[in-house]
């Protein structure tokens, strides 16, 4: 299928282009802005010219911008993200490795919990449109979607960890040296918090697309053919309704990767989000660069995957490409 391949390559190319531009933004923000990074890092100590010059050298700030960017990007491609400016100056790759694993587990759990629930709530409220169920789900979704995730998190903590019940830990200091299975309770509140923040978006989107499909002429036709109602819903309506939702699911998982910032910070969960807060607070530029680039890359990749999946599962796109 050459046309299909062509479009896939084009999407891939666009993804790479976006990533490149993202890296330029990250680089520009941290290294090329008029406010000198070395000055920003040293703060009041920047009067100390010797330390200042040394730091500039370490950050390669004394070279031309293009060269700085090229060598930085080259490092990123090779997996060499530079050395942390804080403490012993460990390799950034080593420093964030564990955090990436922790966050990945967190996001994965949150996605596994939230997506099935969203699909169920979304399709049921579309099928029972304007019913009591639909209204309750609608109001719940509206409220949850309005609340900042750290507010949801604090309420969770107040209810399940401190003020009302004392079932779960309010702090999730996962220790990567201990087996994960023993620390599952530490994940519960962050996962629930993230899931509660995602469910409203995905389920509202699915409801909207299902409602639209249920109003379509082909669903009317299926009913007038005498097709049973469950078959109309699961066979005729949902496959069509799910397609536009894929994009939203991808964006929301990507959003989870960013939304973890406040949630991890709240639960002092050792992931990339809390890591980013620390790095920004400490002005640890190489770590900031690495983490921001990682989060943006995840967004681009997930979007790309959603694009490809959408093309592959919708016959019109799959076979209609020219």
């Amino acid at each position: 299928m050459p046309p299909l391949l062509k479009i896939l390559f084009m999407r891939l190319g666009l993804g790479v282009l976006t990533l490149l531009l993202v890296s330029v933004v990250v680089f520009a923000a941290t290294q090329a802005l008029p406010g000198d990074a070395a000055k920003a890092i040293l703060g009041k100590d920047s009067a100390d010219t010797e330390r200042y010059e040394a730091l500039r050298k370490q950050l390669r700030l004394d070279r031309p911008l293009v060269e700085q960017y090229a060598s930085w990007l080259g490092g990123v491609v090779r997996g060499d993200l530079g050395k942390s400016l804080v403490g012993a100056g460990a390799n950034v790759t080593d420093l964030i490795g564990k955090r990436v694993v922790n966050s990945a587990i967190l996001v994965l759990f949150a996605a596994l919990v939230s997506i099935p629930i969203s699909i169920l709530l979304g399709s049921l409220s579309a099928i029972w449109r304007d019913s009591k169920f639909d209204n309750v789900v609608n109001i719940a979704n509206l409220s949850l979607a309005s609340l900042p995730e750290f507010v949801i998190g604090i309420i969770m903590v107040l209810v399940f960890a401190t003020a009302v019940f004392k079932w779960l830990p309010s702090v999730s200091n996962v220790n990567s040296l201990m087996p994960l299975s023993g620390q599952m309770t530490l994940f519960v509140l962050p996962v629930i918090t993230l899931a509660l923040a995602v469910v409203p978006y995905v389920s509202r989107m699915l409801r909207a697309s299902t409602v639209e499909v249920l109003e379509s002429e082909y669903v009317m036709m299926a009913r007038l053919k005498g097709v049973s109602e469950p078959r109309v819903l699961w066979h005729h309506a949902l496959p069509n309704a799910i397609v536009p939702t894929i994009q939203v699911i991808a964006i929301n998982i990507a959003w989870l990767a960013g939304g973890i910032v406040t949630v991890e910070y709240l639960f002092t969960f050792p992931g990339v989000g809390a890591g980013l807060v620390d790095a920004v607070a400490n002005r640890d530029m190489p770590v900031v660069q690495a983490l921001v680039l990682l989060m943006a890359a995840i967004y681009v990749l997930l979007n790309l995957m959603a694009d490809i999946v959408t093309i592959l599962i919708s016959p019109r796109l799959r076979t209609g490409l020219r």
Partner: peptide
Amino acid sequence: MRVLDVVLAFPSVVLAMLFVSILG
């Protein structure tokens, strides 16, 4: 739209954090 896609790639507060890291 391509340029805006780049902005879109930075999740919610992360873009602000990126610039805060250098400019305070």
